[in-house]
Computed example of a mutant assay.
Amino acid sequence: MTGSADFCGLPIADGAVVTVGTFDGVHRGHQDVLRTLVRRADIRGLPSVVVTFDPHPLEIVNPLAAPPLLTLHDEKLEMLAQSGVSYVAVLPFTSMLAAYEAEHFVDEVLLRRFRMRELLLGHDHGFGRGLMVDTEVLRALGGDRGFDVTVLPPVHAADGHAISSTAIRRAIAGGDLARAAAGLGRPYSISGTVVHGDRRGRTIGYPTLNLATPPQRKLLPPDGVYAVRVQLPAGAFGGMLNIGPRPTVGDATRRIETHVFDASGDWYGTRVRLDFVARVRGTTGFPDLEALRAQLARDEVQARAVLAATS
């Protein structure tokens, strides 16, 4: 798999089955597209190629409307790598690329670079300048240039609504992690590098793993305490995570701190992933550290119970 925009070395002389999209979140709808992509490519005996973009197209086309991201660049590539596709090509999204007509994008990128034999798209695809080109225009292009176009129907949530990145963002912003996980097909997560904190947690019996603050584009749930699963090099461990300020000690900085259950070690500089399972409570100030310690003990009991029930 490659994440480069230099495609000359890809062994696709006989063509490829291609999908194009932003794929933010790589949610269940995206996963359906990817599974179908791999299956169609296998039937044809061709490689499968995902063409995606960085940054998010709206950051260039309409920055004020650009949504917070469910998956940052590396997180998205990690999810796509698990899908079984042959290649991922990341196009730098620029104002020049945004101005491409659909016909020009098909000719210069999908056909010339990938020798596309079939284009597979989700039901809510956007294509060409202004993302306004419809399926019939693409099928007409395919008929003229010799490639097939397949558009997949939506995948629906339990409430009957189509799964979308927009709906998942709304759930996370509102703290509804169960709804977000149902749409994603996995718990919502953040990844990052472990950095040094002020080591105050260990003085009250709750040492924490401190994550570097993610880029502002990354969507975070509301401030509070959460039951989480911590993906460490040694394996997966339960834990409880606090996002937000620490009013008890007068620290207004928004931090991401996790107390890992039943594990200890020096993880500084290690990249870890934190999977949100459930919200335990909101951010609260306490009169002193002893009162905070007592609350953390209660939080631990609740977090362990949630993790045990969802293992």
Rank of each mutant, 00 (worst) to 15 (best):
H156F: 15
V155E: 10
G142V: 08
D159P: 00
T135Y: 01
L152W: 00
A140K: 07
H156L: 15
G142S: 09
L141Q: 08
G142T: 09
V151N: 04
D159M: 07
V155A: 04
G160Q: 10
V137Y: 02
H156K: 10
D134L: 10
P153A: 08
R145S: 08
V133H: 01
V133C: 08
D148M: 00
V133Q: 02
D159F: 02
T135F: 04
L152A: 12
V151G: 07
H156P: 00
D134M: 03
G143W: 02
E136A: 15
V155M: 08
L141E: 07
L141K: 00
M132I: 06
P154Y: 02
R145N: 10
L138S: 09
T150R: 01
G160F: 05
R139Q: 14
L131N: 11
G142A: 13
G143A: 13
V155K: 07
T150W: 00
V151R: 04
V155L: 05
V149R: 06
V133A: 14
D134E: 14
M132W: 02
A157P: 06
T150M: 01
V137D: 11
D159V: 09
G146D: 11
D134V: 11
V137C: 10
T135H: 05
R145V: 15
D144G: 03
L131Y: 01
T135N: 02
D144F: 01
A157L: 14
V151W: 02
G142I: 05
P154Q: 13
L152T: 14
L138G: 05
A140H: 05
F147R: 04
V133R: 02
D159W: 00
E136T: 13
G143C: 09
G160M: 14
L141N: 01
G146P: 05
G160P: 07
L141W: 01
D144V: 06
R145L: 15
M132T: 10
V133E: 14
M132L: 05
P153G: 11
L138N: 08
V155Q: 06
R145E: 10
R139G: 03
T135D: 07
R139D: 04
T150I: 06
L138R: 06
L152S: 07
V151E: 11
E136K: 07
P154F: 00
A158P: 04
V155W: 03
G146I: 13
G142M: 10
P154T: 10
D148F: 00
G146A: 13
A158G: 05
V155Y: 04
V149H: 03
T150A: 06
A140G: 08
A157D: 15
R139H: 02
